[in-house]
């Protein structure tokens, strides 16, 4: 299986390429991509350089244009698609149907991948996007078990890519307005979730409180590590109890299920984390590549150390196993 790695910066791109990535995904420094964070992403010349660096090492570059086009400002997305094509990107990762239509019509030779943000979670939806826009690959939302993925793979004629490691959306991707309800900024429209501009940490007695737009997302006792207040991973009061109402502060790790995913017909494994530093990216890529290349029995030792790098140091297989639901 292909290992798809994140790069938030040109430096992270080079590290990921050197560490053994099969392909690297990245985005432009504007609203067209879903990791629209300060200090991240690529200018057009940086992308051109990255594509060349990757190509010299047999590494493909996928450009994420995975936000929804703002009405009236569609040209920003069309220009980004044109720039990515001109830069020689191996694939464009697109969420918005009208942008898919634009790419299919203007650049029929360009390889089109459907972003996880397009929220295609079943055979009918996937076949519709493949037949309408010529999509060659689809990134599956994190709402399916491995047997469900296998059933889909048998009935679609495109490649399937799944998230294997890193941050975990609890909600179906591309269908979440929690962040804009609280902060006015959302993944679909602005490429951000629970933006740092709205985050505040404050001390309250012995506790550290993390807030988003003035709402308490979590409260940490002495010695408890204070995590980032992503709003679906907070601790709340619900049904007379305090707890993680939606999801604990865990990250996704399905490296123990590589065979099952391969048998299910998955083409590519994706690592989340364009917002991560280059050292993290390099470490994760190297270890996952080693794990992929080793016998199942030896795999655990490659992956073990990685768990320490994970958010909250705990991991989950998420929706890939039925019990998560």
């Amino acid at each position: 299986m292909e290992l798809i790695c994140p790069a938030g910066t040109p430096a992270a791109y080079r590290e990921a390429a050197d560490a053994g990535a099969d392909a690297i995904y990245c985005g432009f420094r504007n609203d067209t991509n879903a990791r629209n964070f300060p200090g991240l992403n690529f200018s057009t010349p940086e992308l051109v350089e990255a594509v060349a660096y990757g190509r010299a090492r047999g590494v493909g570059t996928y450009v994420a244009l995975n936000t929804f086009m703002r009405a009236g400002d569609e040209d920003l997305w069309y220009r980004a698609a044109g720039d990515a094509v001109a830069a020689g990107a191996e694939a464009l990762i697109v969420a918005d149907m009208a942008l898919m239509a634009h790419v299919a019509e203007r650049y029929p030779e360009q390889r089109l991948h459907v972003s996880v943000q397009a929220s295609a979670s079943n055979v009918d939806a996937i076949n519709f996007l493949v037949s309408s826009f010529g999509a060659r690959r689809l990134v599956l939302p994190r709402v399916l078990t491995i047997p469900e993925i296998a059933a889909i793979a048998r009935n679609v004629n495109c490649e399937l890519e799944v998230f294997a490691f890193g941050g975990l959306c609890v909600m179906a991707e591309g269908r979440c307005s929690l962040s804009s309800y609280v902060t006015g900024q959302s993944p679909n429209m602005h490429g951000v979730c629970s933006p740092a501009s709205h985050v505040r940490y404050r001390e309250d007695g012995e506790d550290m409180v993390s807030e988003l737009a003035g709402f308490t997302i979590n409260r940490f006792g002495p010695g408890e590590p204070a995590g980032y207040p992503t709003l679906c991973k907070g601790r709340f009061h619900i049904a007379e109890d305090d707890g993680y109402a939606f999801e604990d502060p865990v990250s996704l790790d399905v490296m123990n299920h590589i065979e099952a995913l391969a048998d299910a017909g998955v083409t590519a494994l994706k690592i989340e984390g364009r917002q991560r530093g280059k050292a993290y990216v390099a470490e994760v890529v190297r270890r996952l590549k080693d794990a992929l290349n080793s016998a199942p029995a030896d795999r655990a030792q490659h992956v073990e150390g990685l768990r320490l790098l994970s958010e909250g140091q705990r991991t989950t297989t998420g929706a890939y196993e039925k019990k998560w639901r």
């Binding site: 994190r142 709402v143 399916l144 609890v170 909600m171 179906a172 269908r175 979440c176 307005s177 929690l178 309800y181 679906c232 619900i238 049904a239 109890d241 109402a245 939606f246 999801e247 929706a319 039925k322 019990k323 998560w324 639901r325």
Partner: peptide, 21 residues
């Protein structure tokens, strides 16, 4: 009330000590 998100996981069942299935 506005629909803001949907998940494969049922937070409602979870809050009351059950799983979705």
């Amino acid at each position: 009330r506005l629909p803001l998100a949907i998940s494969a996981r049922c937070a409602h069942a979870r809050a009351k000590g059950h799983t979705k299935d």
